[in-house]
Amino acid sequence: MHPQPLEFGMTAECGLTDNISWWDSDAEATIVLSQPDTDRELWNEFLRGAVESYRRHGVERAIDVAAVRDGADTAMFWATLDSTGRVIGGLRAKGPLLSADDSHATVEWAGQPGLAAVRKMIDDRVPFGVLEMKTAWTTDDRDKARVISTALARTPFHAMTLMDIQFCMATSAPHILERWRTSGAVVAPIAATPYPDERYRTKMMWYDRRTFANHAASDQIPKILREMKTVSAQAGAHVAARAASQ
């Protein structure tokens, strides 16, 4: 038996004047959702951590910090903070995409047989709203990284709630995809691409907020729904406070 597609009615203004945060007891960390212009210092800390993490793994060519530093194409980002306030992981949402040309996936599949399928999957979904999750990283502490990755796998639903869109997509190596699939991501039937180099077989995955419960792990679903309510409530409070001050 499969659960019915879920309907979401909350639409919040995405222009955050303050960040949204909550404690994640599994990761034993605070998750902060914000935007580059709202939290410039936190944004810079997130990028610094991403660059260091990618460099340690020898894939620094996969992140062009100069191109993303101003945050112009970043709808929102997430930073995971330990008990000392140090950023130990995070990711960002790029978009909304207007066409496949806006997606970094077209760069990753350039010259590969799957490029046409990648473009079609994106373009077919653009009318319903598409964000691209990018620049994901975590601490190198293996045990800590596992629980942080599981928490970050729920972040697409925060973005889809705030922006009232249906889809999020991401690309990653298979061992990362397995972690993200716990929250309902579906791996696209497109041949992998050797990106950022021949050591990797990068695949594309999709989140659909209407049908994710058909694919997510049972323990992730209540956490997703709880966090969506938290995000909606805090965003709504920000909007109300802003309106009252005008």
Rank of each mutant, 00 (worst) to 15 (best):
A110W: 09
T135Y: 11
T138A: 14
G129P: 01
K134M: 03
T139V: 06
F157Y: 15
P127R: 06
R154W: 08
V130R: 04
A116T: 12
D143R: 14
V130H: 06
A151E: 13
A151W: 04
D123P: 01
R146S: 09
V147P: 14
L115N: 06
W137N: 08
R154V: 10
D141N: 14
P127A: 08
G129W: 00
G129V: 00
G129F: 00
V147K: 15
P156K: 08
P156S: 07
W137V: 07
A117W: 03
Q112C: 03
R142Y: 12
Q112W: 00
K144I: 12
E132T: 01
P113V: 03
L152N: 07
T135F: 09
G129E: 01
T139D: 08
A151Y: 06
K144M: 15
P113T: 04
I122D: 02
A153H: 03
D141K: 10
E132L: 03
K144F: 07
T138R: 11
P113D: 04
L115K: 04
Q112D: 00
K134L: 01
I148E: 11
R154M: 14
Q112H: 05
G111I: 09
L152I: 09
A153F: 02
M121D: 03
K144H: 13
P127L: 06
D143K: 15
G129N: 00
T139G: 05
R142Q: 14
V126A: 02
M133K: 10
I148A: 10
A110S: 15
M133I: 15
R154E: 12
A136E: 13
P127S: 08
R146P: 03
A153D: 05
G114H: 04
K134R: 08
A117Q: 12
P156M: 07
V118E: 01
R119N: 02
A116E: 13
K120Y: 03
A110V: 09
M133A: 13
D123Q: 03
S149I: 11
T135M: 11
P156Y: 04
T138C: 14
D123E: 01
T155Q: 12
K134P: 04
G111K: 09
R119P: 02
S149E: 12
G111N: 10
V130T: 08
V126P: 02
G114S: 04
D141M: 08
D140Q: 13
P156I: 06
G114D: 04
T138Q: 11
T155H: 09
A117C: 05
F157W: 07
L115M: 05
P127T: 09
G114V: 05
D141L: 10
P113A: 02
P113R: 04
D124T: 08
I122S: 02
R146C: 07
V118M: 02
R142L: 15
Q112Y: 00
D124L: 02
R146I: 08
R142C: 11
D143C: 12
R119M: 01
R142V: 15
R146N: 10
P156N: 06
K134F: 01
K134W: 02
T138P: 12
D140H: 13
M121H: 05
F157C: 07
L131A: 10
A116K: 11
D140R: 14
G114M: 04
K120M: 04
R154A: 13
V118N: 01
I148G: 09
R119E: 02
T135P: 05
V126E: 01
A116Q: 12
F157S: 07
V147L: 14
